[in-house]
Computed example of a mutant assay.
Amino acid sequence: MPERTQEFGKYGARGAKGSELVGRKLDDLAGYFATPVTAPRGLMARLHYLTRTANARNAARAAGLTVTDRTLKAWLDGKRSPSARNLQKIEAVYRTVRRHNVAAHLLKRLNRAGRGTRVEIHPLNQSGVSRPQQRVVPFRDMNVRRWDAIVAAWAAGDAAGLDTAWTDHVLPDLGSEYGAYEYCTAIGFAA
């Protein structure tokens, strides 16, 4: 990759890895419950989502929810409440199962039968970089037609795979200076 960033932020630039921003945007599109798991309403919503069918229960168990059926029933009935550790586990399992459930739908919407989705890439923030070290990195937009690897890595929770899919397979379409867009302030797209 040309101009691959080795020490991001050394001269005062700010931003985040583009793949992380894409993952955050996909999380937004997944439509998670807004109420936190620590609130009774949020906990019940997540538990109902994870236990409403046999397939949902199996997916939750595969994702790491290892409590007994008796404990789950006590939580659902309000007779007991989960520990802080179990609340974190419930949130992680819920997000994993939700990602898996919406991945196929998101992929279809993003690919749009081969037409792809328009993506805006806002370059890194160089306001903290002294003038001699600044480089010209303009705002870019592009049409991404290959979302399969990106959505698959996101659904699996594979940050390294998502970074590879974004950096090595999508950014080169920007041209010879695509390495300058490894870190960005924002990436926007809708599906």
Score class of each variant (00 low, 15 high):
122 H>S: 14
4 R>N: 01
41 R>W: 12
134 Q>L: 07
75 W>S: 00
131 R>I: 14
98 R>Y: 08
55 N>C: 10
89 K>E: 08
17 K>I: 12
60 A>I: 03
147 W>D: 00
155 A>C: 07
132 P>E: 07
188 G>T: 14
94 Y>H: 03
61 R>P: 04
101 N>R: 08
157 G>W: 06
2 P>Q: 11
75 W>G: 02
5 T>M: 15
33 F>W: 10
133 Q>H: 09
119 V>T: 00
93 V>N: 01
190 A>M: 13
56 A>N: 06
20 E>Y: 12
68 T>L: 02
143 N>L: 15
48 H>K: 12
49 Y>H: 05
6 Q>L: 14
20 E>Q: 13
65 L>P: 04
105 H>I: 09
166 W>F: 09
108 K>D: 05
5 T>D: 15
126 Q>E: 11
186 A>F: 13
190 A>D: 15
110 L>K: 02
142 M>Y: 04
156 A>Y: 05
108 K>M: 09
29 L>C: 11
144 V>K: 02
16 A>M: 13
80 R>A: 11
150 I>H: 00
74 A>N: 13
20 E>G: 14
163 D>L: 03
3 E>H: 14
172 P>I: 02
166 W>G: 02
92 A>H: 04
180 A>H: 15
185 T>Y: 13
40 P>K: 09
77 D>C: 05
173 D>R: 15
179 G>W: 05
176 S>P: 10
103 A>Y: 00
188 G>E: 15
76 L>Q: 02
46 R>K: 03
165 A>F: 03
70 R>N: 12
50 L>A: 05
5 T>V: 15
129 V>E: 04
169 H>K: 12
152 A>M: 05
42 G>M: 01
139 F>D: 15
117 T>Y: 00
47 L>Q: 03
115 R>G: 03
57 R>N: 01
114 G>T: 01
110 L>F: 02
152 A>E: 03
186 A>L: 12
123 P>C: 01
92 A>M: 08
160 A>Q: 12
12 G>C: 09
3 E>F: 15
151 V>P: 11
3 E>N: 11
118 R>N: 11
59 A>R: 00
94 Y>S: 03
140 R>A: 09
167 T>L: 15
48 H>F: 13
187 I>C: 09
147 W>Q: 00
142 M>L: 12
138 P>C: 07
137 V>G: 13
6 Q>E: 06
92 A>C: 08
165 A>N: 02
61 R>W: 01
104 A>H: 10
97 V>K: 05
10 K>L: 15
106 L>P: 01
61 R>Y: 01
21 L>C: 06
56 A>S: 02
8 F>S: 09
168 D>W: 10
